[in-house]
């Protein structure tokens, strides 16, 4: 609601390139269970993450936590990119 008038650039994780760093702006999936799993593994809005690998699955890292997720789950994480490599 406070972002009105600003342009916020964010993109689903699966559209980003390797080594991209960014901040999670939203976690949205029709399947509530997936959102809960991501939260349980410690991934939440406002967190700084790095996309390390895209194949065979997506590997993302945040702080000392690292997870592997498939494309479907990756697309449910929206990221505001802070650097592009």
């Amino acid at each position: 609601m406070f972002t009105e008038g600003f342009s916020v650039h964010y993109s689903p994780l699966n559209f980003l390139g390797n080594k991209t760093q960014g901040v999670i702006t939203a976690i949205k999936n029709q399947d509530e269970k997936i959102v809960k799993k991501l939260l349980a593994m410690g991934f939440h809005v406002g967190m700084q993450i790095t996309l390390e690998q895209k194949f065979p699955v997506f590997v993302i890292r945040a702080g000392r936590t690292r997870i592997a997720i498939d494309k479907d789950i990756a697309s449910s994480i929206k990221v505001r990119v802070s650097n592009r490599n």
Binding site: D31, I34, K37, L38, M41, V57, V59, T65, R66, I67, A68, I69, D70, D72, I73
Partner: peptide
């Protein structure tokens, strides 16, 4: 099935 797994060091 969806795939997610935590990767410990």
């Amino acid at each position: 099935g969806c795939f997610y797994i935590e990767i410990p060091p």
